Structure formats: C-alpha cells, structure tokens
Simulated scan of single mutants.
Amino acid sequence: MTSINISLPDSMGAYIEQQVTSGGYSSASEYFRELVRQDQKRKAKEQVETLLLEGLNSGTATEMTTQDWQDIRQVVRERAMKRKEQDQG
C-alpha cells in the first residue's frame, strides 16, 4: 500500500476530522480512500457519457442486420479465445 503525506490548512483538517467522526469512518485514511473511489466512479461515468454522446452525434442510426450480429459474435469469440490462450500460457 502506498503512503502519501498531505498538508492541509487547519480548517480543512478540522473538517476532515468532523467527517471521520460523523461519517462513521475509522480514520482519515479511510475517508480519503472513499473520496478517491467516488472520484474514480465520477470520472468513469463522465467517460461513458462522453462515449454515448459521441455515438449519438456520429451520424444517422441504421438498423442492425443479421450479418452485423454475426460479425459481432465472431469478434467476441476471437477475443475470448485470445484471452483463454493468454490465461493458459
């Protein structure tokens, strides 16, 4: 586990101690880990939203054909085989 030292103004330190006490955290480290996890989730959500918007703005939607589904299944099978080979090797 990595250790990081953080310098904070007294007012922020007091705020963190208050959050630890009132939020049911066992330590300031636990509180900071939770903040980092929340930030990671927020950024992942932003990335998904960006990708969805790119998809929506990428042009006119077309109906999926039987061939499209077959192509997708083939790509998935190939990726699964590669992953299985990597796991075994």
Rank of each mutant, 00 (worst) to 15 (best):
E63L: 14
T66W: 06
S58V: 01
E49Y: 06
S7F: 08
Q86V: 11
E54G: 09
E54M: 08
K82P: 00
W69I: 13
V36E: 06
E54W: 07
K43Q: 14
N57C: 02
D39L: 12
A28T: 04
E17Q: 10
Q67W: 03
I6S: 04
Q38V: 04
R42C: 00
F32S: 01
G55I: 03
Q40N: 07
S27Y: 00
Q74Y: 13
T66G: 03
K41R: 12
Y31C: 04
V20F: 01
D71H: 10
Q70S: 07
E78W: 00
Q74D: 10
R83G: 02
K41C: 04
D71L: 13
R77L: 15
V76I: 14
T62L: 14
E49R: 08
G89K: 09
G55E: 11
V20H: 02
T60P: 06
Q86I: 10
T60E: 14
S29N: 05
D39N: 09
R83A: 15
A28R: 15
Q40S: 08
G55W: 10
A44C: 03
E30C: 01
S29T: 07
Y25G: 02
V36G: 00
I16A: 08
L35C: 12
S3K: 10
Q70Y: 01
M12K: 05
G13R: 13
T21S: 09
V20W: 03
A61G: 05
Q19N: 03
S27V: 04
D68C: 02
G24M: 04
